[in-house]
Write a protein that binds this DNA or RNA. Structure first.
Lengths: 211, 211
DNA sequence: TTTTATTGATTGATCAGTCAATCAAAAATA
DNA sequence: TATTTTTGATTGACTGATCAATCAATAAAA
């Protein structure tokens, strides 16, 4: 069987399998054997390519983060106004493929791991910073920098919190309801400012002005 | 050494030790020996009183939840108006002893555990429901029931999200900043309604009217 | 033949949970 | 009161299972 060039194929298969396994079990207490079996290879091969379980987990987080970035970049490209950029970021966070029980459970498991593993924490901090800074760049033109920072903090927190709620699977909010909640927060905060900036587009963020 | 009536003393010591150990390590991957050592007893004694590690963990969550309820009840008792009740609930969530890195890390670890342990999930669902329903009872007099539900969802999500952010320990928000964010959200949403109800007190929630 | 892919078998460590034994206070008895 | 019995508290040592990591061996390209 051994054909050449298997390494990238196996790496991807193992990372995908790790995500599925962690997600379905909802915990990082999955064995290398579990993951390898899911990927259709031996546990020894997983060690061969990743060196350690920890490294495989880190590669898995990176994959998750990379997907999120790709999605965010694509969504931002389609947004014309600052307000639309903010909406695009909110929507990406709750995009169907990011908001599945498996993926949410995996994120949660990684957050737990962040407490004891600095490298994991670092990656999650990068995610948090990126979301915050992306939101900020959309919000700054719509308010003062201080308000923008504040609103970005609030929106980011609400997004993360909705993820947690989702993970409990008890009366979880739908994607649409989640998006609406965050949108309402942002709109409410922006319209509550001592309007020194035109806010005309802020009430229907997704219907951008024509031309 | 054996004096009578040690059981409640040991149980409490073990639960406290579990919280400290889990919090400081930031993970449920602590051994019974770790916890027992922290409590100053043997691992065998921990098993003697709790039967299993899982049961000790569940007792620990219950303790956390119980403390939260006690604090909430006390805070609600001091609140005169519905709006003040909402503020009291927000403040309790970020109360100093609930918002320490240890406690936050422990909560996070328990959320992870909720994925695979139904009893743990059930307890966390209880917490989520209690917060939501408490918020609701304060919000309903200030808005319609539908808006109240929506705002309660948003506020609860934001609170949980701020906890997560805290756990990352990267530029975490202060207690005051956290409280302010949630307060601003609630105030912003309430003032954005088609005001069919008097909202005069909603802008300075903590300065209740006299008499 | 050299290199790459792959695995079964093994190792060493870790841990939850069990158990039999010990110790000392309390209760019963003399 | 003095002595014996009972009982709760406590632990060290052990077991069985699990798992990450290693390694030597095999198979198939190149």
């Amino acid at each position: 069987m051994p054909k050449l060039g298997m390494e990238p194929v196996r790496r991807k298969a193992l990372v995908d399998a790790a995500l599925r396994t962690i997600g379905s079990q909802g915990s990082l207490d999955v064995t290398m054997s579990d993951i390898a079996r899911e990927a259709g290879v031996s546990a020894a091969l997983a060690h061969h390519y990743f060196g350690s379980k920890q490294q495989l987990l880190i590669a898995t987080i990176r994959a998750l983060l990379g997907q999120l970035r790709t999605d965010a970049v694509a969504a931002l490209k389609a947004a014309a106004t600052p307000r639309q950029r903010v909406s695009a970021l909110i929507r990406v966070s709750f995009q169907a493929d990011q908001f599945t029980p498996d993926v949410v459970a995996a994120w949660l498991a990684f957050y737990g791991q962040a407490q004891s593993a600095d490298e994991v924490r670092h990656l999650l901090v990068i995610y948090a910073r990126r979301l915050h800074s992306n939101l900020l760049s959309g919000l700054k033109p719509l308010s003062g920098p201080d308000d923008a920072r504040r609103i970005a903090d609030g929106a980011a927190a609400m997004i993360d919190g909705l993820y947690i709620r989702q993970s409990l699977k008890a009366a979880p909010l739908s994607i649409e309801a989640s998006v609406t909640l965050v949108e309402d927060y942002v709109s409410g905060q922006l319209s509550g400012l001592n309007n020194t900036l035109p806010l005309t587009q802020s009430l229907s963020p997704l219907n951008g002005e024509r031309d």
